[in-house]
Each structure stands twice: as structure tokens, then as C-alpha cells.
Amino acid sequence: MPIKVHIPQAMRQHADGQASVDLAGANVKEVLDALGQKFPNIVGRIFDNGQVRRFVNIYLNDEDIRYLNHLESATKDGDVLSIIPAVAGG
């Protein structure tokens, strides 16, 4: 069973309009690399010089990867990876 990656609305124009994709990878970085290979234009929306952009958070099964093991956090089949940027409107 692959890892499900949820793509936020604001980034879907760079992912053929898809809300989620199933990908493989042993850790968060590998999964996001796989996402970037599938949709190259999304990479710049998530990363800046190899670092996750500071208003974008990555959650592995609803846990922030910053208190897990950052991009090296291990993933396993069935995990859910969510990319959630800050929401500005009000």
C-alpha cells in the first residue's frame, strides 16, 4: 500500500488538479522527491533551496515533521502525508 500525499488547493494547478496522489518512499524526503518527479512545477511551491518553505508545513499522519525527524522522518505503507500552507484570508 503506498503513501497518500494530500495536495493543498493552492498547489493543485501544479499537480494536474489532483487533490491527492499515491506515492512510494522510505522517508518524507523520498516521498516528496517522488511528488516532484511526477509534478516538477510543484517543487518550487514546497521547497526553497532544498528547505521546506517557512509558511508551508508537512504533516505525517497529522504530526508535524519538525518534531519527528524532519524530512528524514520514516514513512511506511498506508501513511498519509499532508502539505498544508498557512491560510491568510479572513
Binding site: Q9, R54, F55, N57, D64, I84, P85, A86, V87, A88, G89, G90
Partner: peptide, 29 residues
């Protein structure tokens, strides 16, 4: 609180007891 399109987010901040906004979103878009 923030909302746009069909989605939104909210969190409560008590200084010293919870993370603050900059802990969660380190910088403004």
C-alpha cells in the same frame, strides 16, 4: 483563524503554554 476557498484553519495560542503562531508557521507567505 483563516479561511479561503472552501477551507480554513484555526489554533489557540496561550503564551508559554502552547506553541505560538511563529512556532507553527515560521514566516508569513
Amino acid at each position: 483563524g483563516g479561511s479561503i476557498g472552501g477551507h480554513g484553519q484555526t489554533m489557540t495560542i496561550i503564551p508559554g503554554q502552547t506553541p505560538c503562531l511563529r512556532c507553527v508557521f515560521e514566516a508569513a507567505p
